[in-house]
Amino acid sequence: MYLVTVLGNLLIIMAVISDSHLHTPMYFFLSNLSLADICFTSTIVPKMIVDIQSDSRVISYVGCLTQMSLFMIFICMDDMLLTVMAYDRFVAICHPLQYPNIMNPHHCGFLVVLSFLFSILDSQLHNLIVLQFTYFKDVFISNFFCFPAQLLNLDCSDNSSSKILRYIAAVLFGFFPISGIFLSYYKIISSILKIPSPGGKFKALSTCGSHLSVVCLFYGTSSGIYFDSAVSQSPTNCLGASVVYTLVTPMLNPFIYSLRNRDIKSSLSRLLSRKL
C-alpha cells in the first residue's frame, strides 16, 4: 500500500510536470497535494514497517516529537491545499473571466508558500504544547505512530496556557479551513443553480467532483480518528481509522483524480508510452 501510494502520487507529479496542457492552477495545486501526501505517509509508514519486521514497538522521545512535528506539517499542508483548491474552483466557476488574472502563477505560488508557513506554525504550536509536559520515561501510546491527539491526552496537569494554545490551533487550522471550503462550495452551488442548461450545470459540477471526494475522505477519516481518541476509552478503537487516515486516504487520492479526470488519464498514457 505504501509503494502504491508513493508511485501513484509520483505519477501525478510527473504527468503535471511533463505535460504543458496541465500547467494550470488546478493541476499545480494537485501536484503539491500529491507531494504532501508522499511526505505525510513517509513520516509514519517506514517506521511502522520496521517495527513489524523487528517486532519492536519502541520510539525515542526525540523521535516521537520529530515524527509528530513532520506529521503535523504535512497533514496541515494537505488541509490548507484542499482549502486553496476549493478557492480555485470558486474563482473558476463564479468568476471565469477574471480567473486568469486572479489565479496567476505568482498568486498560486504565494498560496502554496503561505500554506506551508501555516503548516509549520501549526506544527510548532503542537510542539510548544507537548514540550510543556513533564518528561516521561515509559509511556504507552495506543497507536502505531505518535498521534498528536493522544500525546496531548497524556497531560494530566491543569495548564491553562496549554489549553489556550490547543483552542488557538483548533480554530486556526481546523475551523477556518473547513469554513473556507464550505463557503466556496456554497458560492459554487449558488452559481451552478443559475446556469440555465442541464449540460452546463453538469459540466461545472464535474470539475469539482474529484476535489469533493478527496475532501469528504480526508475530513471523514480525520474527524473519526480525532473523536475516537478524544472520547473512546478503548485503546484499539481508533486504530482502524488511523490506518485509513495514514494509508488508505493518500493511496486513493491519485486514483480519484486520475480515474475521474480525462486530462490526467491522457497525460499519464502519453507519459507511460514515452517511457515504454
Results as ranks from 00 to 15, higher is better:
M1C: 07
Y2K: 03
V4R: 02
T5F: 02
L7A: 05
G8A: 04
I13G: 03
M14D: 12
D19S: 06
S20H: 11
L22I: 02
H23W: 10
F28W: 10
F29I: 02
S31L: 05
S34A: 11
L35Y: 08
C39N: 10
T41H: 05
S42P: 06
S56Y: 07
R57K: 15
R57A: 13
I59Q: 14
S60I: 07
V62Y: 14
G63C: 03
G63A: 03
C64I: 08
F71Y: 05
M77Q: 08
D79E: 07
T83I: 06
V84C: 07
M85K: 00
Y87M: 04
D88S: 04
R89N: 06
A92C: 05
P96Q: 03
Y99T: 07
P100I: 00
M103H: 01
H106M: 14
H107D: 08
G109M: 04
G109R: 00
F110Y: 11
V112Q: 01
V113A: 13
L117G: 06
I120W: 05
D122G: 09
D122R: 15
T134R: 14
D138N: 14
I141Y: 05
I141A: 04
S142D: 14
F144L: 09
F144Y: 08
F145E: 09
C146K: 09
C146G: 12
P148H: 10
S162Y: 08
K163H: 08
R166D: 02
Y167S: 08
Y167D: 01
G174F: 05
P177W: 07
P177E: 06
I178S: 02
I181W: 00
S184A: 10
S184F: 00
Y185P: 09
Y186K: 12
I192F: 02
G199L: 11
G199D: 11
F202I: 05
F202P: 01
A204C: 12
A204V: 05
C208M: 00
C208S: 06
S213M: 11
C216F: 11
Y219T: 08
T221H: 02
S232T: 07
Q233V: 13
S242P: 01
T246K: 12
M251C: 11
M251A: 11
L252H: 01
N253A: 13
N253F: 12
I256H: 02
L259F: 15
R262H: 07
R262P: 01
D263A: 13
L268R: 04
R270Y: 03
L272A: 08
S273G: 04
S273V: 14
K275C: 08
